[in-house]
């Protein structure tokens, strides 16, 4: 396991600088508001928790009235719901999927299994704490949590988004070395996802001091190139 435990460390919160242009502020707030009112979720049905989502979406609880819709690909989604225990094999896919989502992106761990492994805590094949591998915004504990709980959780997230507090996705960029280290610990040093996180962080100025480190060096040494195909004349 990696040397530091980041799970409780807050992101190096650069307070959103109030811009001098009031119009820009209004615009930022509008975007944040829209983000909170339009959440596309990708439910990664790793385990039994998934069964509670359909009732949350359909006529009884109707998530759509809150602007929440299910989506099917990570590209389209804002929220990744991990609904149950995450086996190591699954974790690879979860990470891949997470990295393919466009920021701002949020992760909700549903069920106890995502918190601490739950009933699988003794299993050799299960990742116990999800937030060692990807930053998690919100856990909804329970085995399984009922739809009311899910919706309650989503509403909490909405509130956080509205005020620009749900910034855990920045953590992934800023402390990528840490997350990568944990991932490498589990999957071996050859571990690589197709998404170029470091490049993305650089492009969008999301780098922190801990983005690069010993683990990213390992990654660079083994990495298959992921530069986009440039258009060449």
């Amino acid at each position: 396991m990696s040397n530091t435990d980041l799970s409780n460390i807050e992101v190096n919160q650069k307070p959103v600088a109030k811009r001098s242009n009031p119009f820009a502020n209004v615009f930022n707030e509008l975007v944040s508001f829209c983000r909170s009112r339009s959440m596309f979720m990708l439910h990664y049905c790793t385990g039994c928790g998934a069964i509670e989502l359909p009732p949350a979406m359909t006529s009884r609880f109707d998530m759509e009235r809150l602007g929440i819709q299910p989506m099917v690909t990570p590209r389209q989604a804002d929220i990744l719901l991990i609904t149950g225990y995450v086996s190591i094999k699954t974790l690879k896919r979860v990470i891949l999927t997470y990295e393919q989502m466009g920021a701002p992106k949020y992760v909700i761990g549903i069920c106890s299994c995502t918190v601490n492994g739950g009933m699988y805590w003794q299993s050799y094949a299960t990742a116990k704490k999800l937030d060692e591998y990807i930053p998690v915004d919100l856990y909804i504990a329970g085995c399984m949590p009922r739809p009311e709980a899910v919706i309650e959780g989503l509403q909490q997230l909405m509130a956080k988004i509205k005020t620009d507090e749900a910034n855990s996705w920045k953590k992934y960029y800023e402390h990528y070395d840490y997350y990568l280290g944990n991932q490498q610990h589990l999957f071996g040093n050859n571990w690589q996802t197709p998404t170029d996180i470091i490049g993305e962080a650089k492009t969008y100025q999301l780098e922190g001091p801990n983005t690069l480190g010993e683990h990213t060096k390992i990654l660079e040494s083994v990495q298959r190139p992921l530069e986009p195909l440039e258009m060449k004349l």
Binding site: C34, D62, E64, G102
Partner: peptide, 23 residues
């Protein structure tokens, strides 16, 4: 179901344009 609020289509569009990272 109740269905989405009045400005839901607009929210969706604004949110999507407001994504931080785009690929």
């Amino acid at each position: 179901r109740v269905g989405p609020p009045l400005f839901q289509p607009l929210f969706d569009i604004v949110k999507l344009y407001g994504k931080q990272t785009q690929i």
